[in-house]
Design a protein around this nucleic acid. Structure first.
Length: 193
DNA sequence: CACCCGATTATCT
DNA sequence: GATAATCGGGTGT
């Protein structure tokens, strides 16, 4: 079975969910056809974390991080790129999200190549801004529900054993680099950098 | 309303 | 390895 992940999956400690997301499948439905990929790299961002958008409190932009779990938090950066995050936190925590940094393409690879202006292979989805382009994820999907069938949702995907998971410093931030909250699959060819 | 800058990427050298 | 591109949100006046 490759069932849709329920809200309870996301209602746990953000760091743990970041680990559990590895191997899960992102399904993007566009006009009845499907693009999909398996998550191979994630980063956790919590409330008491200077690197997190949520650190300085709620704003119009980061509001999804404070909202219900299992929703998408999509934001625009550097004037060019969208980043796709999954809202996850335990019941006592105010805000938390997990940035998806890389996926292994599965379904609809031909169309993803087109969306990526011809880029194929690992270069198609080995970065947070690249995978959103490959899956046509943009601001319209901000706050989308990922726990039910629709334009964007996550399913069980493939099993990953804890021994396959590697943790390291998060990328592209200047504070909070002491936390090893970036998780990836060891020796995976679809990883960024 | 002006200023600053970022959870990035592509394209150079 | 270095840097330009690019623009909306956040902050302070």
């Amino acid at each position: 079975m490759n069932s849709i992940l329920p809200a309870s999956f996301y209602k746990q400690d953000t760091i743990q969910v970041a680990r559990h997301l590895l191997g899960k499948q992102i399904i993007r439905e566009i006009d009845g056809h499907i693009l999909s990929g398996f998550i191979v790299e994630t980063e956790a961002y919590t409330t008491d974390d200077p690197a997190s958008h949520a650190y300085r409190g709620i704003t119009a932009r980061n509001a999804p991080m404070f909202g219900p779990v299992g929703h998408a938090y999509v934001y625009f950066v550097y004037g060019n790129h969208y980043c796709f995050n999954v809202v996850a936190k335990d019941t006592l925590t105010k805000a938390g999200a997990i940035l998806v940094r890389a996926i292994e393409p599965c379904d609809g690879i031909e169309q993803m190549t087109t969306l990526r202006n011809g880029c194929s292979g690992y270069n198609m989805s080995n970065g947070p801004g690249k995978l959103t382009q490959a899956l046509d994820i943009n601001h319209k999907l901000n706050n989308a529900e990922l726990t039910k069938s629709g334009p964007l949702y996550l399913t069980q995907g493939i099993d990953v054993s804890p021994t396959q998971i590697e943790s390291s410093q998060r990328i592209g931030i200047k504070v909070g680099i002491d936390k090893l909250w970036r998780f990836s699959l060891k020796n995976n060819r679809w990883l960024s950098r």
